[in-house]
Structure formats: structure tokens, C-alpha cells
Design a protein around this nucleic acid. Sequence first.
DNA 1: CCACTGACGAGTG
DNA 2: GCACTCGCCAGTG
Length: 110
Amino acid sequence: MRREQPGTSYERIYAAVRRVPRGRVATYGQIARVAGLPGHARQVGYALHALRPSTTVPWQRIVNAAGAVSLRRGGGGGALSQRLLLEREGVAFDARGRIPLARFAWRPRR
DNA sequence: CCACTGACGAGTG
DNA sequence: GCACTCGCCAGTG
């Protein structure tokens, strides 16, 4: 199944994700836009989901527009891992489990 | 070809 | 802020 390279779009998405600096987070829509695929936020999530465990792509820095972790497996290792990885980078979560985007959102230059 | 699902977002009430 | 709808695209049955 090679869902890791269905085309060139995924590469663009991964490239955009790699731009997010440590200690900052970006939203799916933001990544889609930077990757040149405005409006394809859903594909960004799909592309990241297809990543291998050993990937070098900093997927943990991508959260939804609300600033919350969006892994479907809520209590599963995924969401927890993402949160721990981010906290380890200096990203803080509020009581509701969300990240204050006003403070940690990545601001790419355009 | 059609229906459904999935790491989403924006608009509306 | 919450619930609902629609739009996007790819993969699967």
C-alpha cells in the first residue's frame, strides 16, 4: 500500500511541517496553505496519519484550529505522546487540554 | 460509479 | 462557546 507517497502533494505537506520551529505549533489549515494547498486541511491530516513511526517529520507540532490535539485515538498513546512531546519542547497546555495559540502559534513569513 | 470514513476548517444560528 | 452543515481530497468496500 505505499500510502506514504501517493504523489507530490504529500511531500509539500511534509516540507511545510518541517518548517515549524521547535517550541511552536501550526494548524492543519496553516500547513495546507504554506504547502500551496489552501483549503486542503483534511489532506494534511491524512498525510500526517500516513507517516511512519520513525519519521523525521515533526508531526507533533500540528494541531487543529482550536489549538487542541486532534488524534482520533483520544486516550490512546498518540494524543498523549503528542502532548508530552510538545510540553517537552516548551509548549504549554491549558486546563482544557488546549494550547494558547496566541502565544505558541507559528507565524510563517509570507 | 456510489457511499462512507477520516490527524480539518469556516460559516451560521 | 456549542451544534450543525458544507466543502476538500484520498482510500476502501
